[in-house]
Structure formats: C-alpha cells, structure tokens
Write a protein that binds this DNA or RNA. Structure first.
Length: 271
DNA sequence: ACTGGCTCCTGAGGGC
DNA sequence: TGCCCTCAGGAGCCAG
C-alpha cells in the first residue's frame, strides 16, 4: 500500500528515466480504474515531451507541454520503467511508451488508482486544490496542527489521515507517529495541547523522512523487472504488531478499529 | 462545519 | 489440495 514515502520513492525512481523523453505511444489495456482513464490518451500524449515529474501528497504529476497527467497509485498501484519488449504482466493497465525504447507501466491489481489528464495547472485540479500542507515542508508544523484541531472532537488518528489537514499520512504512519508522540489514537484532536501537537508534527516528519530513506534503498532500481519492494515492516514499532510487546515499555500492543481503520497502539505509552 | 459510513476491487489468509 | 468466505485499505463522496 503506497503511502507518501513510497510515492516519493517512486517519483525519484522514475524521474531520471522520464525527464526530456517524448511519448511515442500510449496503450490502455483497462480503463476502469477509480475513474475511467481518459479516452484518446494516446492521441493526446503522442509526441509530447515530459518536462517534469512532481508529487503533491500521494499524487504524481507528470508535466507535459500541453498539460499534466495526474497519477494516483491507490493502494496496490506501482510504476516501473521497462523495455517495451518486456512481456506484460497481469494488471498492467496502462503503458506509456517512450522514444528510447523503454516504457512506463502502471500495474494496479485492485484498481483503486487513477490516471487523469488536465490541460490546466494540476495543483488547481479539484482533487488537489484543497489539499493540506506537505508534511515534510515548513508549511506543516505543530502550531498549524493545533489551530486546525481546535474544537474538533474527531479522534486524532482519522484527523491526521484527512488530506485537508495534512497530506500523505496514511494508516500505517498515523499509527507510528502517534506512538512516537505518545498520543492515544482515539484522543479527540481538539484535546491535544500545543506542546504535544508540536511533538506530533515532529514525529510525523521523522517517521516519513525515515521511511523515504528506507524506500531509497529498498526500491533502488526501477528498471529491474524483479524489483518489487517489500514493505518496511522491520522498522515499524506498532503497526501490525497486536499482541507483541511495546518496544518502549513491554506492554502488549493493542489493535482497535478507529474510523473503520485498524489502529495499533500501546495502552501504557499512549494517552 | 463536522463526522461517520459506504464504496470501488482483488489477493491473501483462515477454516474446513 | 482446493474451495469458500471474509476482510483490508486510499480517499472521494454522501447523508445526517
């Protein structure tokens, strides 16, 4: 399940292979993703040069001369650079062929991902226009978090996963950051002190930055057809570890569903 | 303005 | 060995 670190790692992995390349052909094998893949994508993109590869939240933005592709990996999507001659695999729904004999392929078994095209500034697109700050930027800090949380009774974990508050904090890293900050996932967002909001913001930055570093080593080679990454489970303190000992105090870690999502926490360390 | 619940989909994992 | 059932999970969307 790609969270922000995996999306950023993907961006870094594909960028050098795409910059300055021209699309020679687009093949859409299955257009039924979260939204239908735009019709005539091949006609739209053919001959256009890729000017930049950016990321906003978990969206990847491929900038062309006449518009931008907006890509989302959903929860099972992945992008790889392969030789065009490489035989296709199951669930490879879209292929962008480049002028150097390689192609970018989107594989997405669960098809929660998205491929959209816009001729305007992608940051103004309705899916992106109202996103909260990037967690690793200076625009995101504990003071801002505290302000946004004021008066809200929603549990802090789903609050953190709301992309209008901050982007890119998915289910796994929300649990991890709350553990680091010592905050119970069910605590009302509006009942966290400024000092603890600052700790929480720091924890979010730390967890995501560390995961990106990990991703950088795990997902090194995007041209390797065998390079499916494992997830960074070895680094996780609480996620997926119900019943195991808390690494800080030894208490058994608990699992609880909060906002329809599995949440993991230490009942002793997190208040 | 908030909040919780539903939805899309497939593969994994458990039970028998 | 295989079949069936259940469930996870990002995030937009809608109802209350």
């Amino acid at each position: 399940m790609p969270e922000l670190p995996e999306v950023e790692t993907t961006r870094r992995g594909i960028e050098p292979h795409l910059l300055g390349r021209t699309v020679s052909r687009v093949i859409v094998r299955n257009r039924q993703l979260r939204w239908p893949v735009p019709a005539r994508l091949d006609a739209t993109l053919r001959g256009q040069r890729i000017a930049h590869v950016r990321r906003r939240g978990k969206y990847l933005l491929l900038g062309f001369e006449q518009g931008s592709l907006i890509l989302h990996l959903g929860m099972s999507g992945s992008l790889r650079i392969l030789p065009v001659s490489q035989p296709g695999e199951k669930h490879e729904h879209v292929e962008w062929q480049l002028d150097d004999g390689h192609c970018l392929r989107l594989r997405d078994p669960r098809r929660f991902g998205a491929v959209l095209w816009t001729r305007r500034d992608p940051l103004e697109h309705r899916l992106l226009a109202h996103l909260g700050p990037e967690p690793l930027s200076e625009a995101f800090d504990g003071d801002g978090l505290h302000t946004r949380a004021a008066g809200r009774r929603q549990a802090v974990k789903p609050f953190l996963m709301d992309s209008r508050i901050v982007v890119g904090v998915g289910n796994i890293y929300a649990s991890e950051a709350l553990f680091l900050a010592g905050i119970h996932p069910r605590r009302a967002a509006g009942r966290i002190s400024l000092a603890r909001c600052r700790q929480l913001a720091t924890a979010i930055k730390q967890v995501l930055a560390e995961a990106i570093e990990q991703g950088g080593t795990t997902l090194r080679d995007f041209t390797d057809s065998n390079g499916r990454p494992g997830y960074f489970k070895q680094r996780l303190n609480v996620y997926g570890r119900a019943g195991e000992s808390c690494p800080r105090c030894g208490q058994p870690i608990r699992q609880q569903v909060i906002g329809q999502r599995a949440s993991y926490y230490c009942p002793r360390c997190q208040k």
